[in-house]
Each structure stands twice: as structure tokens, then as C-alpha cells.
Amino acid sequence: MPAQAPAAEDAPRRLAQRALRGLPWEVGVAKPDPAIVVDDVTRTFGGLTAVSVDHLEIQRGGITGLIGPNGAGKTTLFNLLTGFDQPNTGTWSFNGRSLGKLAPHQVARLGVVRTFQLTKALSRLSVLQNMLLGAQGQSGESFLKALVPGTWRAQEKANTEKAMDLLRRFKLDAKKDDFAGTLSGGQRKLLEMARALMSDPEVVMLDEPMAGVNPALTQSLLGHVKDLREQGMTVIFVEHDMDVVRDISDWVVVMAAGRVIAEGPPESISQNQAVVDAYLGAHHDAPLTAEEEDQVLAEAQRAIAREAKRDGEVLRSDGTRADDERTTP
């Protein structure tokens, strides 16, 4: 643990960014060193296709931002990758090992941990207990060994030290004995992230870690996420704030209506027509501005005028009959 900080200073920063620099900005592009590979994964809810991803690779050791409008399928994709949901079709692998049929806890044990969009603090456990729960391979978690404290006490002590280290980094050490249920929303986000890190994961998947967090705290959270990258972890995170995405991502994947519609470095995204359409597509339904309204009105009037002209012609050609009708009574 203490070795990490100095190592981070020496390590060449943002390795992944460099590795990804030369890649074409196209959907499904192969990465030099993918940690996660997704193939033909689809998930439908009734008639709705929530996720339909043909091919996606996530670069190891980088921060990949996953963005997209509400309902794009980001959370569903997370659920599929971590075993919380089962897809209709498709395969995906982590370090070349297929994760297809694994239960969520098995995925987590392999080193892929996630946080939830709706924070899951374990309310009636203390902050420290929350943290300790994240540690892997605890012998005291087996029923029989639990009854003999001697078999797990040393491990518990080591885990507690590690937990306190992390809590200090996340500025939660003063709260260690409080119930997690008494924390504020932002503190819960921090706790959930810190707890996930207790397992020394290889891949961390964060679902909107900054949502509902005040700007100052956002900065510190961003710092933590960047730290994870420096420690060699692969981070995938969902975020709606484009400034944040631009700031920390090495690579951005854009989803809309279940599909990956674009991927590339952050600077490529705002220029991408598909992305602009996906985001602004929603705006076409929004109330129109006065100018637009005038335009639409003018258009409509012209259309009506054209119709009327054609109708007029019809009437004229039928003139005799119209006259007949007039004279009949």
C-alpha cells in the first residue's frame, strides 16, 4: 500500500492515453491491450432493445468514459458485464476469460467490481464494517472458522489497517464508527467507491460516481479516479457531465438507444455528427424557439397554399357540376 504513492510519481502517466493515440475513431475498433471484450451482446425488455453492442473493447489501465442520453443502456450494460443481468445473446470476456455464465459474486472475485447508480451503502453497518466487507478471501467468512476467532483475527487486523488507509484517502476516517446510513449522499458515493477498492480490483466500473456530489467533492473524487489509473486499474465510468468526461477519460464510448454510436478520445466526441444527433435528437421534441416556430408556421402555410391551389383546380374542372348543384333547387 505505501509503495503505491512513490511508484505513481515515477510511472509514466497516462499510458493508456498514449497507447490509444493512433487508433481510428470508429465504433468497435480493436485496442492494443484490451481488458474487457464485448461481442454481440443484446438485451431486450419486452419489445425494447436496451443494449445491442456488436463489438467493444476496453483498454487496460485506462479510464474509459461511457456516456449517452438517459435510457441509452449504460446501466444495463454494466449489469450485464457484472453478472447482475443476463443477456439475450452475446459473449464478453475479461482477460480472455469468458464471463458469460458467471454469477455476480464470481465476477467480483475475478477482479471486476462495480458501484451502483443508486448508491448502496449498508446503512446499519458502520463505515468501517462497510469497508471490511469489501476485502476478499477472508477466512472468517466461512461458517466454521468464524467460530474460532484465532483463525481470522490477524487477517481482520490487516484488513482494518488497509481500510483505514483508504478511509483516510477518501476523508472518511473520522466517520469510521458511524452508521453508513447517517452519511450524506456524497459521502456514501465516496464510501461505496472506497469499499469497492478494498478488494484490490483490476477493473472498477463506476455508475455515475459524481451524480449528486458537490463540485468541491467532485474534484476530490476525480482525483481518486485518476489515482486508480495511476495504480494500473482499468476504470469504466458512466457520467453525464461532459467537462468531467473530457477531463479524465482516455477514451470515450458513446451509447444511444442501446448501441455504441461512437468511440474515440474525448476531443473526438464533440465533433462527431452521430453523437450530436443522439444528444440533440432529444431536443427536436423540445419546445421550439420563436424563430423556429415562425419557420414551421411559414412552411405549413406554404403547404396549405399548395394544397388549396390543387383543390381549386379540381373545383374549377368540376365547375359545371357545381353549377348544376346551384341551379337544381
Partner: peptide, 19 residues
């Protein structure tokens, strides 16, 4: 630690699975 897991399940199963 066994009891900790069990109590955590009482609070939120999915969080425990994710760990």
C-alpha cells in the same frame, strides 16, 4: 466476518454480491 456478511445481506443483497 461471517456475521458481517449476513448483516450486510440484510441491508442490501446486491451490494454484497458486487463485493
Amino acid at each position: 466476518p461471517w456475521g458481517r456478511v449476513v448483516k450486510a445481506i440484510r441491508e442490501d443483497e446486491d451490494a454484497v454480491r458486487a463485493l
